[in-house]
Design a protein around this nucleic acid. Structure first.
Length: 603
DNA sequence: CTAGGGTTAG
């Protein structure tokens, strides 16, 4: 195709230039216009443009078509060129403005897209639905809430705010700017939302980690009689993944198959992720195996799935398979690989992959890749090396990066390094309650009560908040949530009693509660044990034991890292009750079976 | 010239 266009131009009789009278310049335009959509590169566009200049066919119609090409899948070069051409047009109409705005919004410079609005208004033109959807998209990319609101007001004035194309972009803009309530208000004002509008609001809830509300709207969408689309499936599945709702996820999988959505690569990728995050690696693998075609994202999802379930070597062999299948790994693929290395103690391999990522694939490491490297070194106990690694980074470290190292100091019992690291964290952010708790628990282990009390006081002074531990379990399609020390759940008395009995049995089998972890220094050991006993993950597991048939796998999701004592207790429970327990915490999966955990206690 | 989108360290 590329050559045919170039040939077409170069074989055109250039004499035409002189022979064709200047007063009839548009006669050749139609054939030129039909050539433009066939172009495959900016170079061809420039050739056509050069040709039209030579032949005096260089008019606004041709320019508009050329600009349209440049902005449809824009790069910075093509946008520069589009801009140049745009400036040559004396009185651009609204369509042309919209075309430019689309290009800026999609790629080059969302700020310029927004600036176009004043140009539109100065030209005496009225923005239409196209204008609003492009500009709102730009605001979403820039997280420019103020500008977004102004556009919203203007759209209301011009009666465009309920337009079927404007409405989803409005919701999307507010979501991107973290104004969930405004997004909801837009949705509520619509009399008959389209599927796309539903998809936008469902996505909004899923992105804000409110999967229950997302799924409620998914049900509302189905009841409204609208037909869900592939995008609906994607967001519904990602909500299930957030919740760890395996039964609902399976139901959606059936729906996907029945309605032919399983032909979409992205839907299958969402299924892989859902199954992996709901603790069923086997189902994730089987979806992956059945896929007729797999793109980078599908491979990455599978690699991340293996890695988070503790199968680091499988994850790495997937990368080899991926290369054989000639699918390019991207930054997320390598994130999964580095994650796999760090969770499996593969330090040298981790370094190798990190280097091949930059050298062979030209991927610029992001803060997340550096995070994996810090974790890789820290988990392996190479704390000094990790510290120096952070200090030498070409980018400014985030508190999270130091926090990663702090966790390693805790698991490798280095109080000194821990104190040094927390100083670095406090320079950036001293409002994160978890940091105080980690270091304080570490100090308590070594009976350094002065440090413990100092940290406690400082935490109160700074008003730093601890995130309460929360674990959930799905039983008969209902997700039950438990908070640490929970006394308000409807079955709490029965449950607490059962938990007391459970702990007695565990103790007989050799379980010893590890009270050194309890943050409060000034309470008695007996009291500490009770605090420990009602940790959310123990409550959820006990609930599962009580309310599911013997032998069933217990699947629990926790919002923080699992605590050492609960991890230990879960091992005993899996042994004594012959139950598999699959516990998802904030960073990985723990499969407990026959008294052992899949993480190999490497965390 | 139009909308909504899966995989992402701790």
């Amino acid at each position: 195709m590329a050559t045919s266009i170039i040939q077409c131009i170069s074989h055109s009789p250039t004499k035409l230039n002189t022979e064709t009278p200047k007063h009839e310049p548009t006669s050749l335009a139609p054939s030129i216009l039909s050539l433009i959509p066939k172009c495959t590169s900016l170079r061809e566009i420039k050739q056509i443009q050069a040709y039209t200049i030579k032949t005096h066919l260089h008019n606004p119609t041709v320019l508009t078509k050329l600009i349209n090409f440049c902005t449809s899948s824009p790069t910075s070069a093509s946008m520069d060129h589009a801009h140049l051409m745009f400036d040559q047009i004396p009185q651009p109409d609204i369509v042309l403005f919209n075309t430019m705005a689309r290009g800026y919004a999609r790629f080059d410079d969302p700020l310029r897209a927004i600036l176009l609005l004043s140009q539109v208004l100065c030209s005496g033109l009225l923005p239409d639905d196209y204008t609003f959807s492009s500009l709102l998209k730009a605001c979403a990319r820039l997280k420019a809430l103020q500008e977004g609101k102004q556009l919203h007001c203007l759209a209301v004035k011009l009666g465009a705010s309920r337009n079927m194309y404007v409405c989803p972009t409005l919701i999307n803009m507010y979501t991107a700017c973290n104004d969930m309530d405004a997004a909801r208000r837009v949705f509520d004002k619509i009399n008959e939302p389209s599927v796309v509008t539903y998809n936008a609001i469902i996505t909004s809830y899923a992105r804000n980690s409110r999967p229950n509300e997302a799924l409620a709207l998914f049900r509302e969408l189905q009841e409204s009689g609208l037909k869900p689309t592939d995008v609906t499936m994607l967001v519904a599945l990602s909500s299930c993944a957030l919740l760890g709702a395996l039964d609902l996820g399976r139901w959606i999988h059936e729906y996907v198959k029945k309605n032919g959505f399983d032909q979409y690569v992205k839907v299958n990728t969402a299924l892989i992720d859902m199954y992996a995050k709901c603790g069923s690696l086997d189902d994730a693998v089987s979806v992956f195996r059945d896929m007729p075609r797999r793109d980078t994202q599908a491979w990455s999802a599978m690699i991340v799935a293996y890695a988070t379930h503790g199968h680091g070597l499988q994850a790495i062999s997937m990368l080899e398979e991926m290369k054989k299948a000639e699918v390019q790994p991207d930054e997320i693929t390598f994130l999964g690989i580095l994650y796999a290395c760090s969770h499996n103690g593969l330090v040298e391999e981790g370094y190798e992959f990190f280097h091949s990522m930059t050298d062979e694939y030209g991927i610029v490491p992001s803060i997340k890749h550096y995070g994996c490297m810090v974790d890789l070194l820290g988990r392996a106990g190479r704390l000094d090396e990790a510290y120096r690694f952070i200090d030498k980074l070409p980018i400014k470290p985030t508190p999270i990066l130091w926090r990663t190292l702090l966790s390693s100091c805790s698991s490798h019992c280095s109080v000194e390094m821990g104190k040094q690291v927390i100083q670095r964290i406090f320079e950036l952010d001293d409002s994160h309650g978890g940091d105080y708790v980690i270091l304080s628990n570490l100090c308590a282990r070594y009976d350094r009560w002065d440090d413990v009390n100092y940290l406690k006081k400082m935490m109160v002074d700074k008003g730093a908040m601890k995130v309460p531990g929360c674990s959930s379990i799905e039983v008969n399609n209902v997700v039950h949530e438990f908070f640490s020390g929970d006394g308000v759940h409807s079955t709490s008395t029965v449950l607490h009693h059962a938990l007391d009995e459970l702990v007695k049995e565990l103790k007989l089998a050799g379980y010893v509660p590890d009270t050194s972890l309890v943050f409060y220094a000034d309470i008695e050991d007996e009291e500490k044990e009770i605090v420990l006993r009602y940790h959310s993950e123990k409550l959820a597991i006990a609930y599962g034991l009580l309310n599911t048939p013997p032998g069933t796998t217990i699947r629990v999701v926790k919002n923080l890292r699992v605590c050492v004592d609960c991890h230990n207790a879960a091992k005993f429970i899996s042994l004594i009750f012959g139950r598999q327990i699959i516990l998802r915490d904030i960073q990985r999966f723990h499969h407990f079976k026959d008294g052992k955990c899949s993480c190999g206690d490497y965390w």
